[in-house]
Design a protein around this nucleic acid. Structure first.
Length: 431
RNA sequence: UCCCCGGUAGCUCAAUCGGCAGAGCGGGUGGCUGUUAACCACUAGGUUGGGGGUUCGAGUCCCUCCCGGGGAGCCA
């Protein structure tokens, strides 16, 4: 008997096949029994008929419970009454393991309950759709840098000796008696790699011990960080725009079924075409003042302000040239206005928040040393980083794109906790 | 860390002014010849998050602790 996956059933109409999966649900009506089986690629309805109540097939059917593992065999039939359009005429049911009291039902559940059962929640069709789109986004990112742009993937270390932006937000661990930290960014290492290989990127998990409890925060999240030698701010922004356009285009092309499952408004995504609107920090402050926000030049643009700005546009919004005082020590100052940094953020539309942060980096040795001292950073730990400015220093720029926020935006999911298989949240590390 | 909301059956929730703790789903039993989160009937299921207080009487009011959700700051 041929083992086939449900997504391929339409190629086997009229054939006897075997499906290996789990019971999604079952229904019966007198002499008919309906078994809904899922196998990870889809759900198929398997039907059985009999006038005899003691039919062995029915007896086996009646022992099955939701999420019991099962192998079913039968003939594939096209039938418009079946969900998905194809069904299996049952010949044989082989129970593998009977599940008792599966906790997740087809009715509603609260977030707390679902999060505590995340290992089982992943079996639901909505979670399948999100995971497949996450997969597609990651594949698109890799294809963009590998195939389209010919970047080299350079893996950054996860255990690091020092902070790149202060130690308060780092997870500390012991490294044979020395303090070590889980990486919160691969950027500094990518700068070294860019000086070696020209255009590079890293892609991996990053860790932030910030005590943030919002729909946009995870303690552990995935980030892609390209870095390019000889790039200026403008080149950097254009690369970010191309990447985001590419990702959205790929998901629309390959995952329309999943977007439909999630009831995502496709029209909003179809508008994501370059060029994206740009607003400088100076302009943003003026706009926000007119909107009635209590804000002045030099203030941080907070979450509510960000959302107000982003909602004015249908495409992702580029905010650029933030005050240097608000930004990280390594950012290159604007030569015409040194109080500004050559930096940018990309805000997703529809209020999904910041998905990209990037900048041109300081290439001058003396200036970088000054900034490290001003920020009270341990100079010894940054010797290798300063070296990059001694041996053939060049202008360079890069950015980081947060995968989970991008997935949340594209799928239309409200909270990033659903965009990663096993989210690490504030005070929550189970399952 | 701070602010707001919540915790009642396995799950999602209700319970009027402080006055007999209930429904739907899920489970069990029976019925139904094409079901679509099937439907119909019956049935089992409770230390109302923990502790303390007020009261003739507390799910309901007060204090406290715990847990969960939402938001702020900061960030991707």
């Amino acid at each position: 008997m041929k083992w086939v996956y449900i997504e391929d059933l339409k190629e086997h109409v009229g054939e006897e096949v075997e499906i290996r999966g789990w019971v999604y649900n079952k229904r019966s009506s007198g002499r008919v029994r309906f078994l809904l089986v899922r196998d990870g690629t889809g759900i198929v309805q398997a039907t059985a008929w009999s006038r005899d109540k003691d039919n062995p097939l029915f007896k086996t059917f009646d022992t099955l419970t939701r999420e019991s593992s099962v192998i079913v065999r039968g003939k594939v039939k096209e039938d418009p009454r079946a969900p998905g359009g194809y069904e299996l005429e049952l010949r044989e049911i082989i129970p593998i393991q009977i599940a008792e009291d599966y906790p997740i039902t087809p009715k509603e559940h609260g977030v707390g309950f679902l999060m505590a059962h995340r290992h089982l929640w992943l079996r639901s069709s909505r979670q399948h759709a999100i995971m497949r789109i996450r997969h597609e986004i990651i594949k698109a990112i890799r294809d963009f840098f590998d195939e389209e742009k010919k970047f080299t993937l350079v893996d950054a270390p996860i255990l690091t000796p020092a902070a790149c932006e202060g130690t308060t937000t780092l997870f500390e661990t012991d490294y044979f008696g020395e303090k070590a930290y889980l990486s919160q960014s691969g950027q500094l290492y990518m700068e070294a790699a860019a000086m070696a290989l020209g255009k590079v990127y890293c892609f991996g998990p990053t860790f932030r011990a910030e005590k943030s409890k919002t729909r946009r925060h995870l303690m552990e999240f995935w980030m892609v960080e390209p870095e390019v030698a000889y790039f200026r701010l403008e080149d950097d922004i254009q690369l970010a725009e191309e990447l985001v356009e590419f990702i959205v285009g790929r998901v629309l092309e390959k995952r329309s079924k999943e977007l439909e499952t999630l009831e995502r408004d496709i029209a909003r995504l179809e508008k994501v075409k370059r060029p994206f609107p740009r607003v400088s920090y100076d302009e943003a402050i003026e706009i926000l003042k007119k909107e009635g926000f209590d804000i002045k030049w030099g203030d941080e643009i907070g979450g509510d302000e960000e959302t107000a700005l982003a909602l004015k546009f249908e495409k992702p919004l580029i905010l650029h040239r933030f005050p240097a005082a608000q930004k990280a020590f390594y950012m290159e100052p604007d030569p015409e206005r040194p109080e500004l940094s050559l930096s940018f953020d990309m805000l997703a539309p529809e209020g999904y928040g910041e998905i990209i942060g990037g900048s041109e980096r300081i290439s001058d040795y003396e200036l970088l040393l000054k900034r490290i001292r001003e920020n009270n950073l341990p100079e010894e730990a940054f010797q290798w980083y300063l070296d990059l400015r001694k041996y053939g220093s060049v202008p360079h720029a890069g950015f980081g794109l947060g995968v989970e926020r991008t997935v949340a935006w594209i799928t239309g999911v409200k909270h990033v906790r659903e965009t990663i298989p096993f989210p690490r949240l504030l005070y929550k590390i189970y399952p």
